[in-house]
Simulated scan of single mutants.
Amino acid sequence: MGKNKNFTSLFFKNVGSLFYAIAAADKKVESNEILVLKNSITTQWLSVSLFDTDALQEITNTFNRLHKENNQDPEVLYQDFIRYKNKEKHLFTSTVTNLILQTANAIASSFSGRNKSELIMLAKLEIELKKA
Protein backbone atom coordinates (compact mmCIF):
# COMPACT_ATOMS: atom_id res chain seq x y z
CA MET A 1 0.00 0.00 0.00
CA GLY A 2 1.44 3.28 -0.64
CA LYS A 3 2.07 6.88 -0.16
CA ASN A 4 -0.38 7.75 2.61
CA LYS A 5 -0.79 5.18 5.35
CA ASN A 6 -4.18 6.63 6.36
CA PHE A 7 -5.69 5.15 3.20
CA THR A 8 -6.06 1.44 3.85
CA SER A 9 -7.21 -1.33 1.55
CA LEU A 10 -10.67 -0.93 3.10
CA PHE A 11 -10.86 2.65 1.82
CA PHE A 12 -10.15 1.58 -1.76
CA LYS A 13 -12.55 -1.38 -1.54
CA ASN A 14 -15.33 0.92 -0.35
CA VAL A 15 -14.64 3.38 -3.16
CA GLY A 16 -14.65 0.53 -5.70
CA SER A 17 -17.98 -0.68 -4.30
CA LEU A 18 -19.42 2.83 -4.56
CA PHE A 19 -18.37 3.13 -8.19
CA TYR A 20 -19.91 -0.25 -8.94
CA ALA A 21 -23.13 0.87 -7.21
CA ILE A 22 -23.25 3.97 -9.43
CA ALA A 23 -22.64 1.91 -12.58
CA ALA A 24 -25.18 -0.75 -11.57
CA ALA A 25 -27.86 1.66 -10.33
CA ASP A 26 -29.80 1.05 -13.55
CA LYS A 27 -29.43 -2.74 -13.14
CA LYS A 28 -26.76 -3.10 -15.84
CA VAL A 29 -23.07 -2.25 -16.13
CA GLU A 30 -21.95 -1.19 -19.59
CA SER A 31 -18.42 -1.63 -20.94
CA ASN A 32 -18.13 2.16 -21.32
CA GLU A 33 -18.65 2.55 -17.58
CA ILE A 34 -15.78 0.14 -16.86
CA LEU A 35 -13.53 1.96 -19.34
CA VAL A 36 -14.34 5.35 -17.82
CA LEU A 37 -13.49 4.03 -14.35
CA LYS A 38 -10.11 2.71 -15.51
CA ASN A 39 -9.33 5.95 -17.35
CA SER A 40 -10.30 8.05 -14.35
CA ILE A 41 -8.04 6.00 -12.07
CA THR A 42 -5.04 6.34 -14.39
CA THR A 43 -5.53 10.01 -15.26
CA GLN A 44 -7.13 11.73 -12.27
CA TRP A 45 -6.47 9.54 -9.23
CA LEU A 46 -2.82 8.78 -10.02
CA SER A 47 -2.09 12.48 -10.45
CA VAL A 48 -2.89 13.00 -6.76
CA SER A 49 0.20 12.39 -4.65
CA LEU A 50 -1.82 10.65 -1.92
CA PHE A 51 -2.21 7.41 -3.83
CA ASP A 52 -0.01 4.86 -5.57
CA THR A 53 -0.79 2.48 -8.42
CA ASP A 54 -1.06 -0.65 -6.27
CA ALA A 55 -3.50 0.96 -3.87
CA LEU A 56 -5.65 2.35 -6.67
CA GLN A 57 -5.75 -1.07 -8.32
CA GLU A 58 -7.90 -2.16 -5.36
CA ILE A 59 -10.67 0.15 -6.63
CA THR A 60 -10.70 -1.53 -10.03
CA ASN A 61 -10.33 -5.02 -8.55
CA THR A 62 -13.32 -4.49 -6.26
CA PHE A 63 -15.43 -3.08 -9.09
CA ASN A 64 -14.51 -6.01 -11.36
CA ARG A 65 -15.22 -8.58 -8.65
CA LEU A 66 -18.66 -7.12 -7.95
CA HIS A 67 -19.41 -6.95 -11.67
CA LYS A 68 -18.40 -10.58 -12.15
CA GLU A 69 -20.47 -11.75 -9.15
CA ASN A 70 -23.40 -9.58 -10.26
CA ASN A 71 -25.40 -10.34 -7.12
CA GLN A 72 -25.00 -7.19 -5.03
CA ASP A 73 -27.74 -4.62 -4.59
CA PRO A 74 -26.37 -1.20 -5.63
CA GLU A 75 -28.35 0.54 -2.88
CA VAL A 76 -26.85 -1.73 -0.21
CA LEU A 77 -23.35 -1.06 -1.56
CA TYR A 78 -24.05 2.66 -1.56
CA GLN A 79 -25.28 2.57 2.05
CA ASP A 80 -22.20 0.55 3.06
CA PHE A 81 -20.01 3.25 1.52
CA ILE A 82 -21.87 6.00 3.40
CA ARG A 83 -21.46 4.14 6.71
CA TYR A 84 -17.73 3.78 6.01
CA LYS A 85 -17.45 7.46 5.08
CA ASN A 86 -19.19 8.48 8.29
CA LYS A 87 -16.78 6.36 10.37
CA GLU A 88 -13.68 7.62 8.53
CA LYS A 89 -14.60 11.26 7.91
CA HIS A 90 -10.98 12.38 8.19
CA LEU A 91 -10.13 10.61 4.91
CA PHE A 92 -12.69 12.53 2.91
CA THR A 93 -10.86 15.77 2.29
CA SER A 94 -12.01 18.15 -0.43
CA THR A 95 -9.48 16.58 -2.83
CA VAL A 96 -10.74 13.04 -2.18
CA THR A 97 -14.38 14.14 -2.27
CA ASN A 98 -13.87 15.89 -5.61
CA LEU A 99 -12.15 12.85 -7.11
CA ILE A 100 -14.98 10.59 -6.00
CA LEU A 101 -17.67 12.93 -7.36
CA GLN A 102 -15.84 13.47 -10.67
CA THR A 103 -15.39 9.74 -11.18
CA ALA A 104 -18.95 8.87 -10.15
CA ASN A 105 -20.35 11.49 -12.53
CA ALA A 106 -18.10 10.31 -15.36
CA ILE A 107 -19.21 6.70 -14.86
CA ALA A 108 -22.88 7.68 -14.82
CA SER A 109 -22.51 9.86 -17.92
CA SER A 110 -20.49 7.39 -19.95
CA PHE A 111 -23.35 5.43 -21.47
CA SER A 112 -26.31 7.34 -22.97
CA GLY A 113 -26.12 10.04 -20.32
CA ARG A 114 -27.35 9.66 -16.78
CA ASN A 115 -30.60 7.88 -16.09
CA LYS A 116 -33.00 8.50 -13.22
CA SER A 117 -31.52 5.80 -10.95
CA GLU A 118 -28.01 7.14 -11.41
CA LEU A 119 -29.11 10.77 -10.96
CA ILE A 120 -30.79 9.95 -7.66
CA MET A 121 -27.74 8.08 -6.36
CA LEU A 122 -25.37 10.85 -7.54
CA ALA A 123 -27.47 13.54 -5.87
CA LYS A 124 -27.53 11.61 -2.59
CA LEU A 125 -23.78 11.02 -2.85
CA GLU A 126 -23.02 14.67 -3.40
CA ILE A 127 -25.12 15.66 -0.40
CA GLU A 128 -23.45 13.03 1.80
CA LEU A 129 -19.92 13.93 0.74
CA LYS A 130 -20.47 17.63 1.31
CA LYS A 131 -21.72 17.13 4.86
CA ALA A 132 -19.29 18.38 7.47
Rank of each mutant, 00 (worst) to 15 (best):
M1A: 11
N4H: 11
N6R: 10
F7K: 02
F7N: 02
S9I: 15
S9V: 14
S9E: 15
L10T: 12
F11G: 05
F12W: 06
F12K: 03
F12G: 03
K13F: 05
K13V: 04
K13I: 06
V15N: 02
G16A: 12
S17M: 06
S17E: 04
L18Q: 01
F19V: 06
Y20I: 04
A21H: 06
A21W: 05
A24Y: 09
A24D: 10
A24Q: 09
A25K: 02
K28R: 13
K28L: 07
V29I: 14
V29E: 03
V29F: 05
E30L: 03
S31E: 15
S31C: 01
N32S: 14
I34R: 14
I34P: 02
V36A: 08
V36C: 02
L37I: 08
K38W: 00
N39W: 00
N39G: 08
S40M: 12
S40C: 09
T42E: 15
T42D: 14
W45V: 03
W45L: 04
W45E: 00
L46D: 00
S47L: 10
V48L: 10
V48R: 03
L50A: 07
F51T: 05
F51S: 06
D52Y: 01
D54R: 05
D54G: 07
A55G: 15
E58Q: 13
I59F: 08
I59N: 07
I59S: 08
T60M: 09
N61S: 13
N61P: 00
N61R: 08
T62R: 06
F63D: 05
R65S: 10
R65H: 08
L66C: 04
H67D: 12
H67Y: 11
K68R: 15
K68P: 01
E69H: 09
N70I: 00
N70P: 00
Q72E: 12
D73S: 12
P74Q: 02
P74E: 02
E75P: 00
E75V: 11
V76A: 10
Q79S: 15
Q79F: 13
D80Q: 12
D80F: 01
F81Q: 03
I82D: 04
R83N: 15
R83D: 15
R83Q: 15
K85D: 00
K85P: 01
K89C: 01
K89I: 04
H90Q: 11
F92H: 03
S94I: 03
T95V: 14
V96G: 09
T97A: 09
T97H: 01
T97N: 10
N98V: 11
N98I: 11
I100R: 03
I100G: 06
I100W: 07
L101Q: 11
N105H: 13
A106K: 06
A106I: 01
I107P: 02
A108K: 06
A108I: 06
A108Y: 05
A108T: 06
A108N: 06
S109W: 00
F111C: 07
S112I: 00
R114D: 09
N115A: 11
K116D: 10
K116H: 07
S117E: 14
S117R: 07
S117D: 13
E118I: 05
L119W: 01
L119H: 07
I120G: 03
I120M: 09
K124I: 03
E128M: 07
E128I: 03
K130M: 14
K131V: 08
A132K: 15
